[in-house]
Design a protein around this nucleic acid. Sequence first.
RNA 1: GACCUCUUAGCUCAGCUGGUUAGAGCAUCUCACUUUUAAUGAGAGGGUCCUGGGUUCGAGUCCCAGAGGGGUCACCA
Length: 568
Amino acid sequence: MQRTEQERIRRESLAALRALGIEPYPAAEFNVTHRSKRLASEFKDGMAVILAGRIMSRRIMGKASFAEIQDSEGTFQLYLNRDELCPGEDKAMYNTVFKKLLDRGDFIGISGETFTTQTGEQSVMVKELTVLSKSLKPLPAVKVDEDGKVHDAFADPELRYRMRYVDLVVNPGVKDTFEARSKVMQTIRQSFDGAGWLEVDTPVLQAIPGGAAARPFVTHHNALDIPLYLRIANELYLKRLIVGGFEGVYEFSRNFRNEGMDRTHNPEFTVMELYVAYKDYHWMMETTENLLSDICQAVHGDTKATLNGTEIDFAPPYRRVTMRDAILEHTGVDIDGKSEEELRAACEQVGIETDDSMGKGKLIDELFGEKCEHHYVQPTFIMDYPVEMSPLTKVHRDNPAYTERFELMINGTEVANAYSELNDPDDQRQRFEDQLTLSERGDDEAMFIDQDFLRALEYGMPPTSGIGIGIDRLVMMLTDQTSIQEVLLFPQMRPEVFDQGPDEKGLQALGIPEAWTPHLVGAGFDRPEALDGLSPGGLREKLNGYRKKNKLDIPALTLEEVESWLSA
RNA sequence: GACCUCUUAGCUCAGCUGGUUAGAGCAUCUCACUUUUAAUGAGAGGGUCCUGGGUUCGAGUCCCAGAGGGGUCACCA
């Protein structure tokens, strides 16, 4: 691993600090009296304050300097004067430590006195400076000018997501998104706990990945010697708890789905699921709109949020549209009473491709997803889904072709999915079997049958309404982000390949003579792994070719030598 | 999985129809400077032009293959 010049210089500074008797990574706690934001709001000249944080900029002007220190709340300006910081003869703390050995990114603690500069900037005159942690890598130098224009932004999404720690330090606003996310979850917890519902934890590793239709991640349990699946949903477990007698249960469930990744999908994502006994989906709609309104209030202090230039109003009530009406309005197709063949024809007619594995549910889903979904920008409940696409939902009280299910659409995206839960065990068994038929037709996302869940229903589940709210997407809606990566601290990325540098010792361990190892590195075989799977003849030819080309003064290799390395 | 596109200094990016020693700003280093704020002035160092082939007298630039990223679509929440 090659170090850059800047890194080498910082390591030299690190050593110089130690030579001066200053520990760059001290163990002792450092207690502050203020943080930047609060200090700014309570600011008066002449306050004695202690602050800690990262040096984000330095403006050195001979015997006086200004520096920006960044803590968890924001930044604050420091004024460092040589003779204030070093009242005695020894000026090393200013001349050497501050001016030469400290860098942008270092953590320091300071104590001093507040004052206002001639230009009117709130500042702290530093009397004492403590080195708290030396930073060995230079932070990207993002600068914001007077017009608020950002220069040299650290904007490459790959680097931002791979090194979120740098992103958080350097890009203003990134923290706000995650604070908003925390506020969303806090508001939900407060609301549900206040209602007397119980927050629970259910298995992430499941023998049967149930509760949704999706491709799961598979792993293996060694002791039991069985495959286990990372949960795609927690729904069936929460319903078992309703069977067990809890009136309301909820869980923030990290779900895992082995599917594509894009702006709205990450392999792991968070869904808040809530189940409440003796309720139906109408009650759940009211509960949901009130909850979202509270959440938006908590985040923005208002029920309105701006998303993609459009104002979204989270104040209840939300529009309620049946799926049949939605499809009728946007495609002219009335799905009511249509057979599979008729629906397939209708799809083809509006330009949707179909294939034989698609059943009625899937066809209707396509009609809605392709032609209707994107129209619903303001929060809208799409209700009464066809029975074929809702295997866990109770049939509609007025029409058995539909179910009591709704999805909440915001900005053309599904944010929540809720039902009057199916609690008739025989009906549930039949629906699972219908799914099995779909699976045999080639739908690899059809649901598995969970026999234990069916048994639980046979013991009796009260009428229940349940909902799953996509937390990541909700946070996107509330923070004006268009990609899910922006609301996940560490979104999924292809693993990074680190350059480990040459491993001459490892090569020698294979029996390669010391005279040859530097040349193997030179020829591109810089680690033992680089030789894996090579044929002895080919390797010998390459190395002897390298020897000839570079006129090396060592004997040519024999086939036996090379064979012995590769068999080592 | 398909298509489009990108990869040049620590960071952000220029680099024309292929042509001397590959540039800028910031960052870094040296010097000056006691109220600055994208501080300023003077000077210096810093490059595997993603990797591997090919075309050519000559490749950062053109061609092929590969790696990684981004975007669009498909699947999905």
